[in-house]
Computed example of a mutant assay.
Amino acid sequence: MEQTNKQNYQELATKREKKRPIIKNCFRAFLVGGTICLIGQCISFFYMYFFDFTEETVGDPTTATLIFITMILTGLGVYDKIAQFSGAGSAVPVTGFGNAVISAAIDHRSEGFVQGVGGNMFKLAGSVILFGVFSAFVIALIKTLLINFGVIG
Rank of each mutant, 00 (worst) to 15 (best):
K143Q: 15
L124G: 14
T65A: 08
I102C: 04
R16T: 13
P61T: 04
F122I: 14
F27T: 11
S90T: 06
C37G: 05
N8F: 15
V151E: 07
A100W: 02
F68G: 06
M48F: 08
G40S: 02
G33R: 03
M121R: 02
S135Y: 11
T70V: 05
F137W: 15
T57Y: 07
T74Y: 07
F53R: 07
F122D: 09
Y49C: 08
A104W: 07
I139M: 07
L145E: 05
N148C: 08
V92K: 02
G77S: 12
Q10S: 12
Q10H: 11
V101R: 03
L12E: 15
F51N: 09
S135C: 13
A136T: 10
K24V: 14
R16D: 13
A136V: 10
S86E: 00
T144Q: 11
Y9T: 12
P61A: 12
F85N: 04
D80M: 06
F85I: 09
E17V: 06
I147A: 05
C37A: 15
I102K: 02
G118L: 14
S90F: 02
I69P: 03
A29D: 01
T4D: 05
G98M: 02
I129R: 05
P93K: 00
F113P: 04
Y9S: 09
F30I: 00
N148K: 15
Q10C: 10
I39W: 01
F30N: 00
S103W: 05
M1G: 13
T54F: 06
N8T: 10
D52R: 13
F68N: 08
Q3E: 11
V92L: 12
K18P: 03
I152K: 11
G116L: 13
F113S: 10
H108K: 11
N148P: 00
